[in-house]
Design a protein around this nucleic acid. Sequence first.
DNA 1: GTGGTCTAGACCACG
DNA 2: GTGGTCTAGACCACA
Lengths: 127, 127, 127, 127
Amino acid sequence: MFKIDPRSSTPIYLQIVEKVKENILKGILELEEKMPSVRELAKMMTINPNTIQKAYAELERQKVIVKIRGKGTFVSADYNGKKDEERMKALKDLFKKGIVEARYLGLKKEEVINMIENILEELKGDK
Amino acid sequence: MFKIDPRSSTPIYLQIVEKVKENILKGILELEEKMPSVRELAKMMTINPNTIQKAYAELERQKVIVKIRGKGTFVSADYNGKKDEERMKALKDLFKKGIVEARYLGLKKEEVINMIENILEELKGDK
Amino acid sequence: MFKIDPRSSTPIYLQIVEKVKENILKGILELEEKMPSVRELAKMMTINPNTIQKAYAELERQKVIVKIRGKGTFVSADYNGKKDEERMKALKDLFKKGIVEARYLGLKKEEVINMIENILEELKGDK
Amino acid sequence: MFKIDPRSSTPIYLQIVEKVKENILKGILELEEKMPSVRELAKMMTINPNTIQKAYAELERQKVIVKIRGKGTFVSADYNGKKDEERMKALKDLFKKGIVEARYLGLKKEEVINMIENILEELKGDK
DNA sequence: GTGGTCTAGACCACG
DNA sequence: GTGGTCTAGACCACA
């Protein structure tokens, strides 16, 4: 389902969170679609269920998915567009870090913009 | 000197690494300039010298700074623009993560590009 | 496990790094094999865990071992044979130093070559 | 006179020691030749005289040079060919370290032997 | 005075 | 139980 790198420094559960969000944007996971259960996904990915559990909890906290008792877990119908100030700051920091790294890799301004545009393209839709 | 957030999940030593690189790009730290000594900076920031040490070690590994025996630590005269493939991939992943997050915060394509351009401008250096 | 000389001028953590690499080449440590945990090895060698930690960090940086979150540390499956130019130069310097020393010890050309061949043989692995 | 790398991890005084020995083997410094005085060399290399002092002390300890009171310092007439056991062991360790590194750089046996032979060639004489 | 290493001991996130 | 980070404090080599 999602490619996970167990050697990465970012925890597995966060990798899952990112991949889920990415797949939703790409349309691979559709809105309101049912997510695999924790156990199911754990088996599919041969990952500790506790880890999946933690990922789902985080996704629910971010309102990306919704748990409905007795029915299962679903992709949230609408992703909230409220501009949480803290998250905005974190986002800017993230980009800054990326751009600093880009500079140290010798990338020019245009190359960076290009890279960004490619990724934007990759995540279909413009909403 | 550098503002550090001790509550952040990214370790202090890595925050220092990022800040130093950022400040060099901004021109706040000039090339060949002497960095504060480990102990000095530790006292200034009221942080344990070992932590600063670790940050400096990482910076030297990345060739951002150079240590000269008995004399101190200096900003490296030339940062090499080798496009390491692995680091390029990591960079792309970082940006992708940022863009996914941006979408979830309700930012439009133009707003993302704008944000990136602002940061690029900011890092152009003020000197 | 590894014989360490605490009086040596080369730091303990680097001695460990060398020994691990040597043992892998000899086949004493097999590829993909699990390494002893930091604490475990620390206890076995009666060395502070932080020192082992530093050795493992260096080994991971050199891609000799891989750490997998929560599971432990493993000998890397594949060591990449990239001929880094800098490291090649360092290697040549190292050998030069050795040969100068050999001459001062009164060794003849053949004796040096012999010594080298013996070591090459030794590292061919016994498994 | 000698190219020194102040950023290297091996101390300056040891770099000098190595270079002197190397230059003697190459014939650049001849046997019985007068060495520059400590102050002279220090000025030539813009290095702290204490450091040169330490290098000369080490060279004398190894009987590579000889200090003659009131006259100066001279290259020793004969380098001693006694096979100090400790130094032999250290030499072997040095070579082993080099060969391990060579393996990790992907060098084949022949390439290693070749490298060694080239360096042997470079240091003229076969004594 | 500079950085480098090591120990001891504590706390934390992850799986 | 695994590794990662941080603090405190000590000792050492180098220039």
